[in-house]
Design a protein around this nucleic acid. Sequence first.
RNA 1: GCGCGGUUAGCUCAGUGGUAGAGCAUCGCUUUUACACAGCGAGGGUCGGGAGUUCAAAUCUCUCACCGCGCACCA
Length: 712
Amino acid sequence: MPSDFDKPYDPKAVEPEIYEKWEKSGFFNPDKLPKKWTKTFTIIMPPPNANGALHIGHAVFVTLEDIMTRFERMRGKKTLWLPGADHAGFETQVVFDKKLEKEGRSRFKIPREELYKEMLSFTLENKKIMETQLRKLGASCDWSREKFTLDPEIITTVYDTFKKLYGDGLVYRENKIVNWCTKHQTTLSDLEVKYVERKDPLYYIRYGPVTLATVRLETKFGDTAVAVNPKDKRYKNLVGKEIEIKTLLGPAKIKVIADGAVDQKFGTGAVKVTPAHDPNDFEIWKRHKDEIPGPRVVIDQYGRMDLREFWDRPNSKKYHGLKVMEARKIMEEDMQKEGLMVKIDPDYAHAVATCYKCGTILEPRILPQWFVRMTAKPSLRDLAVRAVKKGEVKFIPARTEKIFMHWMKNLRDWNISRQIVWGIRIPAWYCGCAEIIVSPDPPAKCPKCGSKNLVQDPDVFDTWFSSGQWPFATLGYPNGKDFKTFYPTDVMETGHDILFFWVARMIMLGLYRTGKIPFRTVYLHGLVRDKDRQKMSKSKDNVIDPLGVAELYGTDALRLALVIGNTAGNDIIISEEKIRGYRNFANKIWNATRFVLQEIKKSPPKAEKSDKIKLGKLKRLVKETTRDLESHRFHHAAEHLYHFFWHYYADKVIEEMKKKPNPLLLLEFHRTLIKLLHPFLPHITEKIWEELPGPAGGKNKKLLMIESWPKP
RNA sequence: GCGCGGUUAGCUCAGUGGUAGAGCAUCGCUUUUACACAGCGAGGGUCGGGAGUUCAAAUCUCUCACCGCGCACCA
């Protein structure tokens, strides 16, 4: 027995050496695989955010994607798993903001160029760490093709897509009411809004002859109308008339209008219309532009009262500059004193829009932003819905398709402008006339008015706009050889939490740009939780560091623990105990190998009477494992292998061989099982393979990673 | 409001028509030369309630209860 086959199995001594062998072999690169392997298999890795260390969720995708990659490679396919890293726009901006804050700095005080440079080096530093960590997890991806979301060729592709969309009228710039985070000082897409249930006072206030209900008392100064339902008999005689009202800033007049969006049954059936600060009211105003004044801004970008428009009115300075919530409280008291408050319902339950990152209540604002048109016909949405309906893209688990369709149905235009520095700057230029020039480079002059004084849009793209183009951008669309060879890709494996953010956008933009779906199968995994089903978070101190446990128990054990017992789409429960359990399994395999090597040394394998029952069972296992892997039932395959190896092969077959040796059969079993286990436990199996004799004797020369998968 | 799920052993979960499973946990025995990171064995579930289809239901249908998730501009 070779000296390095000591007990127990020591992953620390084996794993790094094995990864190095794989990487040196070049077989991660499909071009280096045997030429006769022509059928392709492609996975584009969801690029991890290069703004911190890898967490356990990353270990999940590495495990699943590596299993698929290794399985298909062993089946003789030209297999490409393309790795990448994401600059992760707003996400990284938030991380970096926190870092700055700790240092007593603020991004709002750093010049754009300087901030960008600093963030770039921060990101590239993290990217390097991340790449090392992916290697430690055993990822058999092609590093020679690695891409970063800010690579020049990726940005060029993104710019080309934007230009095409603009030419087709599918992106447009418009002043619209958008979600604004007063902390992060940027707009957010509808997906980045988190609605939280809250209880707030509902104020019934007196507007002359009308009583109306509102939560947002402070927006009252921005009212431009009172709206009622056209069918509401109570207000019939008021519609179209101006009513005299008493306000905290003195007397005023306001018009009553009729709009079908007003619910007669809610409150008093009358609402105040504040188009500058409420999305509903903005829409109402758009329908009544001729009748009522436009939006009147009374809250600034920091969420403070801005009453400069009312400077000449009494009391305006009293509220000016107050935070929204402070203003609301003081106004409540003042209105009660003035007799303007009819009643207060103190515990009105409603949903409030907040920033998904910091929880700050969003302040709707009207801003010029770029939108991707989703609802027009024909639209990006139609392309995607049609392809999915036709079954060109298959979802795992299948129920995801219903969720996808439901979201697509409710889709609205997508705001892709962000007021941050970190990202791909929007390639649009303005001069002051109405003309917009879409170009990556500064145009010499405006073709319409001739002005040479052009300024670029200060905003950057929503990061999902660019990463939504990832599959074809990384493969070098339109002329790249890789694009022709590997697109459409086979599987997109990612977390179900980014189904809409990313997967849906990739399908839409992929179809739009290339005319083809970006991937045939979407496999979604769940969120990782601890053994008490708690979300992992630093504050709960229940975070499992994948690299830490891999160091302790071995990467292979971690990988198996992440696969077994976890089905697609469902949350993944992991605990250190579980990982330890599979560490024991690795050790079991190791020791069984020691037995096999010892037996073979004792009596070299030669033809014995074959055991049809045992071989039949093995054959069935090969068949089932293959079928399970083909249908993405990884947990099932892994569980069966575990059970078969331990409770049949080790407990029965090996035990029997101690009494009645049959080294040839033993070797057949061992070779087959090691191959079947390789996608799940790549390091230990590769190490064992080195020492295992081939069927004709002599050590295996080929790496296990490119050995042929057992024939089912 | 619309949509999607879940409810199986103490815990975490597999199992989708044919006599209830795994890991961990618990208990007992065994230091037998691959392995104590082990082996052998034990306990433990009327598969959320009810109804139906079927020769047969954890599995299909309906219904109720509870839990979870997603989407959503009701002031």
